[in-house]
Amino acid sequence: MKKRHLLFVVLGILVLAWPLVLHGVFIQHVAALLVLAAISASAWNIVGGYGGQVSIGHAMFFGAGAYGALAAYTDFGWPPVAGVPLGIIAALLIAVLVGLPTFRLQGHYFSMATIAAVELLRILLSNVSVLGASVGLMGPARPRGLADLSFRSPVPYYYLFLAVLALLLVVTAWMERSRLGFYLRAIRGGERGARSLGVPVVRTKLIALMISAGFTALAGGLYALMVGFIDPESGFGLLISVKMVIIAALGGAGTLWGPLVGAAILIPLEESTNALFGGSGTGATYVVYGAIIVLISRFLPGGIAELVQLLSVKARRRAA
């Protein structure tokens, strides 16, 4: 165990200190995007991974958070960060409204219902003029003060995102060991079985969805801070939801570190394929990106976490 602790300490120092040493702005930007993606995938992981409720509509929470931030700026002139709590409250309301009816559905039917819900919201939103309708909302064109959290360098965003990610990991780790975590895993194993053992299925799923929705909305709010623009497609688009699922599944859904590993692979991959092939306009970005996802789902359906487990078992056998 001591060796493992040392590894974590070294990794932690690396994660915290590298932007102070390396000054490539674009690499710093990619790192901030990576942490942001890890936050939304980890948030999805709570209900989608641990609970096995594969939501493909998490963009509804992400979008709510992003819109909360920029609507607060556009409609009230607040700094966007002050609107993030509004976005989180909206996301929690959506979670209850969508969760209660859809949790009666299981498996693919639940996934389909979440897709329908997010599409419905996206179309509704295109007609709400205080929320920018189909044109979208923009953040402060130039920072009015520090409170607008608008920086030229990606490094402040990186640390801000890192702090949120750390909080989310602590919450997830706590949940893993708590009754909620055991209930969720029981539900993933089989809802009927869990119910027969006395697990309050609907309540557990709803609590998990609300925690998940809150953090996804927070990720959306952070996205809005950094990008400074949101429209129905970039907030509630289907690809936003799908990306969370892919990142979590790639790293290992239902594990603490899985979404982080997934983000650490997928985001640099996405950015470097776009940097290398995007300008050619041939869609090579998606071909390379897609091929890697296919390879992983073919050879490692349980994600990278499964590989790590396999390897450590092998190593232990060799040691024995």
């Binding site: 674009f26 930007h29 990008v227 970039s234 050619s280």
Partner: peptide, 22 residues
Amino acid sequence: VYTDGQNSPAVAQSDALRLITQ
């Protein structure tokens, strides 16, 4: 130097940053 902004304001932001700094 062409870049693909896709249909995403976030990607266009990354592209602009890369074009300027790299």
